[in-house]
Nucleic acid binder design. Sequence first.
DNA 1: AGATCCTCATGGAACGTTCCAATAGGTTTC
DNA 2: GAAACCTATTGGAACGTTCCATGAGGATCT
Lengths: 337, 337
Amino acid sequence: MKQPTIHDVAERAGVSKSLVSLVMREPDRVSDASRQAVLEAAAELGYRPNAVARSLVQRRTRVIGVVLSDLHNPFFADVADGIEEAATLRGYRALLSSGFLDAKRERAALEMMLELRVDGLIMLGSMMKVAKIEKVATSLPVTLLGRHTTSKVVDSVGVDDSAGARAAVDHLVALGHERIAHISAGEAAGAPRRQSGYKKAMRRHGLEDQIRSVKADFTERGGARAMTEILASGDLPTAVFAPNDFAAVGAMEVIDSAGLDIPGDVSLVGYDNLGLAALPRIALTTIGQPRADLGRTAVRLVLERLDEDRKTARHEVAPPKLVVRATTGPPRHDARG
Amino acid sequence: MKQPTIHDVAERAGVSKSLVSLVMREPDRVSDASRQAVLEAAAELGYRPNAVARSLVQRRTRVIGVVLSDLHNPFFADVADGIEEAATLRGYRALLSSGFLDAKRERAALEMMLELRVDGLIMLGSMMKVAKIEKVATSLPVTLLGRHTTSKVVDSVGVDDSAGARAAVDHLVALGHERIAHISAGEAAGAPRRQSGYKKAMRRHGLEDQIRSVKADFTERGGARAMTEILASGDLPTAVFAPNDFAAVGAMEVIDSAGLDIPGDVSLVGYDNLGLAALPRIALTTIGQPRADLGRTAVRLVLERLDEDRKTARHEVAPPKLVVRATTGPPRHDARG
DNA sequence: AGATCCTCATGGAACGTTCCAATAGGTTTC
DNA sequence: GAAACCTATTGGAACGTTCCATGAGGATCT
């Protein structure tokens, strides 16, 4: 059960521990004979360098900690892909810990990362107060992903949600829609900007008197509830723009079971381009975000501070992308009287 | 940027480093005055214990490493919930790393965990060879989750995939089906037992000459390809049992676009009961598993070895549960005349 | 032939903790 | 009033590496 150490390898190979260390790090700087002897001894013993000891003396771990608020959100999985890829490429490793949508557990996850002395930190969709995060950021580079901030210490990377909403409205208007309703998700991350983007876009098209917003949240159930409310009003819009794909799917269910056709009677646009939006039976028109790119960018921001000594905060914003599928089409002519 | 150490705290509080250490670990064993002085100094400096140094001297990290083959699979998210919960309860922490459905990257993730000297390891849906994992298991407790093994060194926890497959077949037979095809996922975790369970169940019903298996994998695309192959054969079964929900959804797309009706022309059963299976437009009949429980059990198995010195391997099996939705129904009588 | 310069290898300090044996000083016991 | 026993605290070794200054020995130069 006990793991062999560098000393064991040194003894077996008949060299000093320093030489073993050198072989592990820079094999070229060692004579052929020694290198071979060391590698052989290491293989025979099943030696594996102890990262704990190395981290202690080097005072860095080459690990980027990723605290993600919710493991279930497929959005984060793609972002994590990008993080992992970029980190590996630069000689770092990514280690994940979940906050499970709970500020307290998120705090515990963060604390663990700090005690483990990760070199940098990426927080995905954090639920913690920015002030707390800023305090953490005094001791290591921290990047906030999927959440806006104008902090002077914490970097951030996100998508231009306002532009995403505009793209959705523009698309619907181009199809001929005018009566476009919005389901909002209140104050949840990203939601306010999507809502204001929707309103701004409507105004730009001279449709300010068509602005109509129903409050809900980011869940399927919330979307269903909002859509039920819209149907009950008796005043059916020709298109609905939901705050995310889950809410859109909820709305979709309600529209389906009311016997209405999508997009014949109502066009529907979601947000996030989750995997489920691509399922042929769902085929949801939605706004995509370059998820893996966001992850890569977050890593870059961390490493700029770590390896290139950047001191001032940066806030990167990526452009969203309209993904047209089968839930949007031209409005019925008779409906537009 | 430099973090304060135990020495800094000791100096500021006017005590020895040993006393500071004691205050951090067992505050009751220290006089009130000293304790207060130390805690005050620690707070003022923003001291945070260095887990790296502690791990080195204690030769354990109190971390359970979780290597998961695929972050995108919602199945694992639930399992991870259970792991995290159980670990925290027992004073351990869970740290995740993804293998991204690639044996090489999984191996790298595993290697990192080993170098970090995690105390125990849980592998979720691993794609690695059992022999490799057994070798790892000689140096720390390893539990394999979602994959079967009769290993004498590695513990495992999973669902009785054979019983799950039987439940699927029994359900279809009860509806009147006889020509039931299976899409298999080859050697991927859990797949072989689902396949053999299918075959066994078919035989039990006297349907051995109806056994038909098409090889694919656990992805949507794989399911689609297999279903395309089945359709192209010209010999359409009345029901298809897929190896998981993703593959089932892939098959569903192909059936849909061939103009066939589900379940009118073909009944379809998935496996895993993912969230997407519950979407009304999908409404997939599938086999559910107690996911969080699996995670909790995995932690228990690791800790039994760690803290209770168990030496012999254990293999825990949980029962699966049939979830009937809208993709299964009685076969057409004329069998497509 | 001595000085200089390589290449290869070594020993020891350091990293920030924990843990243990030891100590100082006070209190209780007989 | 000495012995025995507390309680509160301390110094130093140890954990397994890396890194640096140093050295041994051979080749090259003047």
